[in-house]
Design a protein around this nucleic acid. Structure first.
Lengths: 225, 225
DNA sequence: CATCATTATGACCAGGTGGTCACAATAGCC
DNA sequence: GGCTATTGTGACCACCTGGTCATAATGATG
């Protein structure tokens, strides 16, 4: 009695040769990433694919379900990447190691799937994207559920300040992480760090610096390290 | 030989009675804030205003110039608010006081002009907004030019850690500030802080906590305060 | 009043959209 | 081959968009 999801393509689509399926998915992703949901044109997609519009509508019910299907591909990719990056983590792992790993996983994701990341940014802020809030929370829950327990553990062990509420710790980490990645992907958001033009090693140094700064704070301490 | 800006309305528009002008501006802002640039419909606007479409095109050259004009109103409002909030600052003012003031100014701005803030978020992330990067940098320069010198001063005086490059300090402050305000305006971005449902005094406490955390860091210190 | 400049109007246009459907092509099976 | 079920097709539809323009209304000036 499993309900078909609205984002499900028809089984005509699932029976398609893998290669053709991949091409269609890629073209759709590109269009949604480039133009956003509203301005994405299915006419353009079928044109560039060289298939008939009717075919597209034999694969999917409508534009919305097409979009949701593509976004599903994105969440699957994110999930996979996060699991791979945190999979070997020990139960009492260090929060900062986890943050570091997530950061690099994010950077790698943007490098490997720039269109998917663009799609995500579109959803974050575009109006009238179908089911926007639900889609966003689906993605944002991953890191939150991941960091929360680690912060609690760190506080219990005394390595994370107990003076700061857990929610604030998570907020700051999330904000820094997200904004760093946004700056990496869109140079005008990096606040002058120049992330877009950095080489890999510089990027690593910058990530480590950011984490160290999050840990130690911006104020000066008597014993400066 | 002053070149007319592309965003300039015709002088037909400037000669309009102030009341009518304000109504038109408000309706346009509302539409752009609600729908974003692309999906905003001028037909809807003239419909809700009860004026003819031709009139709108006697006030402005085209949709783009309409949008740029409305965005100009926004930057003017932001400029005014920032100047008012920082105007009385002493030359050797404290960075953290400045951050605090900017934070509250931002909150007040969102409360007072939610549509303008929405407009800004649209521009930040929507595709194919005319001159997007230029518009964004126009707004983002304000706080950056403001905080940069204060950070440098703080580092010279030894109150801000000299171990952290100025650009990183500015990045973290900017990211926290921006994200906090985004979370305040869009609850699904607040990372669980629950900003949207807070009363004013709670909000003040949260801002102070955030600033204190930025200063002291997330790690625990022997002398915990 | 008449004359002229300015402003308001809305029917109209070309272009694009998501979506449909009668039909053509193909594939599988006997 | 012939028959059926599935898949591919693109002309077509209603709808909406930003933008135009001939014309009407209004205001100013004498």
């Amino acid at each position: 009695m499993m309900q078909e999801r609205l984002s499900s393509p028809t089984n005509t689509f699932s029976k398609l040769p893998a290669e053709k399926k991949a091409k269609i998915e890629a073209a759709l992703l590109k269009e949604f990433a480039d133009k956003g949901y509203q301005k994405a044109s299915l006419n353009t997609v079928v044109g560039s694919l060289g298939i008939a519009k009717g075919s597209l509508y034999q694969y999917f019910a409508n534009k919305e379900s097409i979009f949701l299907y593509i976004f599903d591909l994105f969440t699957a990719k994110v999930k996979g990447m996060l699991q791979r990056s945190s999979g070997h983590e020990l139960p009492q792992a260090d929060l900062w190691q986890a943050v570091r790993r997530t950061m690099f996983a994010g950077i790698a994701f943007i490098d490997r799937y720039p269109d998917f990341y663009q799609l995500y940014l579109n959803v974050l802020f575009e109006h009238e994207v179908p089911q926007r809030e639900e889609l966003i929370s689906r993605v944002r829950l991953f890191p939150m559920e991941y960091f929360g327990p680690l912060v609690a553990l760190g506080q219990a062990q005394g390595r994370i300040s107990r003076a700061v509420p857990l929610s604030m710790v998570v907020f700051l980490i999330d904000a820094s992480l997200d904004r760093f990645l946004q700056g990496y992907a869109r140079s005008y958001l990096d606040g002058g760090l120049g992330l877009a033009t950095m080489g890999p090693s510089e990027l690593v140094a910058e990530v480590d610096l950011l984490i160290k700064t999050l840990k130690n704070g911006l104020g000066s301490h008597e014993d400066q390290g």
